[in-house]
């Protein structure tokens, strides 16, 4: 079976008054029907990765090298009609702020139906019934009435459900979710997470879930890839990452979650701030903030160790752990 997603040596630069090396040599692959969380802080390149996957970045200002394949389709070579068909058909996306992503002047039913008509070429009536079915599937109460509501008439949680219905209306093989629960309240966030988990099982699609919250990643995904400064520093199954994180950055992130921290105890904070990425990193990007830094870290890019299949750590310190195993 072809891989659902195969990114190889993706390097992405934004040009303009100043250059930003947003993604530096990222390789990532996913099997069919997998859920992967991309975990990282702002500016680590997680959203840019998703946008590159959908070809949403401005071509004039972006330099992309490497290869992105979704189900065997080379995404970077797509353009025009083919790209339109790919977006929303093969791969679709749920955004962080549903109020901004939905069109305020059309009813939600109309918006879902429009996408179905475009991709499936069915009549408006059929598309509307698909829209109704989708609203039911995302557990919107009295979906029949909600179909004719405008986005501003819905609450935040409800809008995010509509957003998900819209994204899934054409049965994509891969769903990209860019922090879809960050703007929601805690009790609504957990509802949306569980809904996404159910729908993922039901439709058997792959999901990439971008988040900065480890707790959310644990709830939604089987696998986690941790990004820092445009690179993947650690990848593994969710329990591998939670229980035996090896990269100092992942360990720091876990400590900063405050889940089991004693009250009033001093937090083990990672000092400093992420690098600005104006130059291409030629040594470990985390070295200036790392508690275990050595001369080796500052000299060259860290080697990538793979202690187990589909598990990797980009850190010199990970080497002895491999030998011990």
């Amino acid at each position: 079976m072809t891989k659902l997603l195969d990114i190889q040596n993706l390097t992405l630069r934004f040009k303009g008054k100043r250059t930003v090396h947003a993604i530096n040599d990222v390789s990532l692959s996913m099997e069919q029907g997998e859920t992967l969380a991309l975990l990282g802080e702002s500016g680590s390149g997680k959203s840019v990765t998703l946008k590159a996957l959908l070809g949403l970045l401005p071509p004039k200002r972006t330099e992309i090298e490497g290869k992105i394949e979704v189900n065997g389709t080379d995404v970077l070579s797509l353009s025009g009609k083919k790209l339109q068909k790919f977006r929303g058909g093969e791969v679709s996306m749920v955004f962080q702020e549903p109020a901004l992503a939905l069109d305020p002047v059309y009813t939600v039913g109309h918006q879902i139906a429009e996408s179905v008509m475009r991709h499936k070429g069915v009549s408006k009536a059929d598309a509307m019934s698909t829209a109704l079915d989708m609203l039911d599937r995302v557990r919107i109460p009295s979906a029949n009435r909600r179909l004719h509501n405008y986005p501003h008439e819905l609450s935040g949680g409800m809008r995010q459900r509509v957003m998900i219905a819209l994204a899934l209306a054409c049965r994509p093989r891969l769903l990209l979710a860019d922090e879809p629960t960050t703007a929601l309240d805690a009790t609504v966030q957990i509802q949306i997470l569980l809904l996404l988990r159910e729908l993922q099982k039901e439709f058997g699609m792959g999901v990439i879930f971008v988040t900065h919250d480890i707790g959310v990643a644990v709830e939604i995904s089987e696998r986690v890839a941790v990004m820092y400064a445009g690179q993947i520093v650690e990848e593994g199954t969710t329990s591998e990452i939670i229980k035996s994180a090896q990269h100092p950055y992942t360990q720091g992130l876990l400590a900063a979650n405050l889940h089991d921290v004693e009250r009033g105890a001093r937090l083990n904070a990672i000092p400093g701030a992420p690098p600005s990425l104006e130059t291409k990193p030629d040594s470990c990007s985390f070295a200036p903030r790392c508690p275990h830094v050595t001369a080796e870290c500052r000299a060259a890019l860290p080697p990538v160790f793979s202690p187990a299949p589909r598990r990797r750590v980009a850190c010199v310190k990970a080497a002895p752990a491999v030998a011990a195993e």
Binding site: E41, S42, D213, I214, G252, L253, A256, L258, I270
Partner: peptide, 8 residues
């Protein structure tokens, strides 16, 4: 704030 900065 980002998690690591939040802790600081």
């Amino acid at each position: 704030l980002d998690k690591s900065v939040e802790a600081q």
